[in-house]
Write a protein that binds this DNA or RNA. Structure first.
Lengths: 167, 167
DNA sequence: GTGCAAACATTGCATACTGCAATGGAAGCA
DNA sequence: TGCTTCCATTGCAGTATGCAATGTTTGCAC
């Protein structure tokens, strides 16, 4: 552990630990807000609903691509969510190969409920944080993300999506 | 969306977006470092290996508890990792009900490989970050985690574990 | 305009993760 | 000795996941 740049390695360790802890908090918040509703959704199902809610109607391939899963996986998830009344299937009138998928009112309602719970809990946490840390934290995190070459995520869409094979 | 404290909500939104993006980076790093090795491990399997590697021999119930999964789930994961030669099963000589589980040399080797890859990639990212942001980021993230009431994670053990039902 | 290639949804098959509910063996205790 | 408790294991079920067909529909080239 004592390489040529020990302080860089230590900084990396500290930073990873810090981001991971914060990440765990967010994940726990997400899980709680999902478990709090009565509809018993899984995380991948919720991700699909969010994509359909925010992105509008898509076909199956497009949906699978947005979720970074195989079309067959997306299809079976659509089957379940459709059976649960949260996703609506329609035939594309222009191209009969395509299936148009959209969230139903019930599906959008669930997304709204979970999002609101999440909002509330995050706001509660941030309110308990020293005020002078908030701005620095945002800047530092954005610098980290920029250094990693990631484009910044839209503030409204904190879904946990965009991770190949992750929830 | 225009409540009594709009700027607090905005701050929460920005912060969530920032932490989530950073979180995505780390998760992507984890996924890449796992996919880069030839052994083709799943994330839950890697979590189990890390627990066995860092925590020493345990019985099945203890292992399941540390991973926050059902004992039957842990058992079948042990089956697979055992078949892959990464986990060793032994009978406890003192109590014949117990099964002693430990990582094999191959299992520890895999953990070391993945950890090193992760280390290297994180270090690379941090090196690309403006120096003056690093300290602020660590402090801010720790403040966030404290506000959420989480105990800080050990810098050496950034595994993604400790999430009930999550990978 | 006919035919071939590409796109698309779908299904079959296999694997992994997950939990709940038995089951059976072993240990501890009265 | 017998009852209770602990522990691993197995059966069953549901979800997620990918790869490899399959069949239908479109689009394009000739």
């Amino acid at each position: 552990m004592h390489d040529s740049q020990p302080q860089d390695l230590d900084a990396a360790n500290e930073m990873v630990a810090a981001v991971l802890t914060a990440s765990r908090v967010l994940v726990a918040v997400s899980a709680r807000s999902l478990a709090a509703i009565e509809e018993a959704l899984t995380v991948p199902q919720f991700r699909m609903l969010v994509v359909l809610d925010t992105g509008g109607p898509v076909n199956l391939s497009g949906l699978a691509e947005q979720l970074a899963v195989n079309p067959s996986t997306a299809l079976r998830m659509v089957d379940r969510l459709s059976a649960a009344g949260m996703v609506e299937r329609t035939q594309d009138p222009g191209d009969r190969r395509l299936v148009v998928l959209a969230a139903t009112a019930a599906g959008r309602q669930v997304v709204r409920q979970v999002t609101e719970r999440r909002q509330a809990e995050i706001t509660r946490i941030v309110s308990a944080m020293p005020v002078d840390h908030r701005g620095a934290m945002i800047e530092a995190l954005e610098a980290f993300a920029r250094a990693a070459g990631e484009e910044l995520v839209d503030p409204a869409a904190y879904t946990g999506q965009g991770l190949p094979g992750w929830s």
